[in-house]
Amino acid sequence: MPETNKHIGPKDFVLSVEGLTVSFDGFKAVNDLSLYVEEQEIRVIIGPNGAGKTTVLDLICGRTKATEGSIKFKGKELTKMNEHQIVHAGVGRKFQNPSIYEDLTVYENLELSFPRGRNVWGALTFRRDQEVLNKVQEVADMIFLGDKLTMQADLLSHGQKQWLEIGMLLIQDPELLMLDEPVAGMSVSERKQTAELLNRITKDRSVLVIEHDMQFVEDIAHRVTVLHQGKVLSEGSMERVQKDPKVVEVYLGH
């Protein structure tokens, strides 16, 4: 159990999701879900297909509007905010398929994500100064792409694209990082590197990850939440969740 769990208190929750429900034409993809994420925690959400994992991330980042319930991030209610306001509040989201700007270079991808000049006037007058160059270089080194800055993003391998998108989030410096299947399609060695990367970057922030790869989940998770039919089925350490008979029945044992 990581040491961050020793001082659990309500004030330590970065994200508190309470009674969250979303219904699409009567079908409740997420049903009365509650979830609490602490500071500097890596939380992994697992669950069978259609359990509502991606929908939960969509709801938190504002892509889907909740039917009921509340999402509080550092005391701010996210359900009433726009996507870009949620990003400004400090939430970053990585999509399931690498979502990067393929027409631009690695450098430009990272620079566009740098949190400055985010309105029209700011973007028109944005200047590439030493601060931007240093930050881009720092993040690029962190995501193993330090020597590929001038490469067009389209030419990267699948794994490198995944890293680039993680880098685009890191440069925003979010307090909550949400990753949807970050190691999907990666080779074994790339997975290892990604696990290391995630463990390194979580020192300053909380991370919410959706993942299917159980080995990877074991490597990174502080705690695991199992979703089933839009509800929390089980929650706790990987070890505990794996032994939970309900979980074995619906998910791990099938």
């Binding site: 996507e83 999509f95 990067i100 028109l124 925003q172």
Partner: peptide, 30 residues
């Protein structure tokens, strides 16, 4: 305009509007 950051944002938006939005930009204003 094209050579400013706004120009690159437009290109980015054309390809991946959602990504730009979730990088903290109000896509509609651009």
């Amino acid at each position: 305009i094209i050579r400013s950051k706004l120009g690159r944002l437009l290109v980015a938006m054309r390809e991946r509007e959602d990504r730009v939005r979730f990088s903290g930009y109000d896509v509609s204003s651009f």
